[in-house]
Design a protein around this nucleic acid. Sequence first.
RNA 1: GCCGGGGUGACAGAGAGGCCAUGUGGCGGACUGCAGAUCCGCAGACAGGAGUUCAAAUCUCCUUCCCGGCCCCA
Length: 486
Amino acid sequence: MALVIYNTLTKRKEPFKPLETGKVGVYVCGVTAYDKSHLGHARSAINFDVVVRYLRSKGYSVNHITNFTDVDDKLIARAHELRMDPLDLSKQMIDEYFSVMDELKIRRANAYPKASETITDIIEMVKGLVDKGIAYESGGSVYFIVGKVEDYGKLSGQSLDQMITGTRKEPGEDKRDPMDFALWKAAKPGEISWDSPWGRGRPGWHIECSAMCLKHLGKTIDIHGGGTDLIFPHHENEILQSEAYNCAPFVKYWMHNGMLTIDKEKMSKSMKNFFLVREVLKEYTPQTIRFFILNASYRQPLDYAEQSLEDAEKALDKLQNSYEGLLADAERATGDDDAAGISEGYLTAFEKKMDDDFNTREAIAVMYDLAREANRMKGRDRLSRDGVKNIISVFDKFNDIFDVLTEPKTTKVVKGGIDIPDTVETDELLLKSSALTDDEVDRLLQSRAEARDSKDFARADFIRQELARRGIEIQDTPEGAVWKRK
RNA sequence: GCCGGGGUGACAGAGAGGCCAUGUGGCGGACUGCAGAUCCGCAGACAGGAGUUCAAAUCUCCUUCCCGGCCCCA
């Protein structure tokens, strides 16, 4: 089995072969830290989290770098509005970013370089480009000469001629050609700036990624990721700068995640149609959000709707139930099938789907098949303890990458009709206002079982209802009532 | 205008030449005091039109509609 990755550069799925055997350098464009993250940012983070986790599960040593843009027009403007130091604002937003992304179980990257901390490397690179004659200084700014590149537009398919004729460009500050873009911007009065050979100034947007890639991952990197909205011009320009400076191919595999949309329109700050991750987390669990994102192809747009999250919640429950059922059976199954072949088969099927350009949707479909198979065997008491454990190990492998299943809070089975509980005491328990202990729940359930045995269903239902009010969910099974805390 | 990506059953969303997607929902059945969970079965689809092929949701062409990018953006 071999992993294939869809490469935006070639518009094809290609077998994945890192430059250096066993090692993978991954750079994913991060956010501009001027505001709180919305669900679109979370989508990108979750998608690439899974990419990195899967690569690691295949034994690759992954060096994952994600940047923060903390020097930028919008950020400066926002800081000015709030009368804050721009770096304090970005610091605050970065803390906020980590806070929500940690909740979403995003594994931390190996490093999170910031533009403000990469200035020396950026200046070095800009200087190099000027020396090579592919960039020029003008009015304290430095611009990249797009016209000097002969294979322009290899990532986005844009052609220079088209763009020149197709778009009218502002004459531009000090640009010689409207197509040229800024590597270094001269500081305006009062703006955050650094000393450079061209006077006080700050980096342009695209150059930071080029500098960071070189610094952390080398001249050529294996995987560069980001949203499809960054393909042009951001990633196109990164290619120009890096390849001109390094004289080496910049990126082997370009991966782009599709946009999160609302009513088919891109979620974005400027459209004001966004949902903050923090807000969504109040309504749905991290697992539900991850499942919603991963239950779709990372390359396509995905439409956000309350209903979709509700659906994801329900759909995920099915896997969670199956998983919990297996965990509960791990020490008490009595069948004789060790399910070795079945487990192996599903694991292989799962990996095969993931190997196909991280097809999480199909991988989930495999898990549903496994869940049904497991439920069926369990229902007929066919599985041995090893069998249960073998199947659990497939779920665990899946969960190492998807991180959507949780350990059940408590799952207990209470056999009914053994002891005659003291009814008075039971009623007291039902009136108790504080949380019930496990023992108390057990006692209530025994009382309920007693009531059921004597066909006093009104009382049985009353107890169930009272438990539900306290967040305890029960299910009757042939072995007795199973309960857990919600 | 140019460059991309799409239009799949009630809904969400895979698949990319022949084989079952999957989940929710619907219908029928099993289990059950009820509920829930679970299992078995059923119905229902590939925007429209031409073409290639023994075979097309999947390839080609045309039409049409939608979305993204071309200032910032995951």
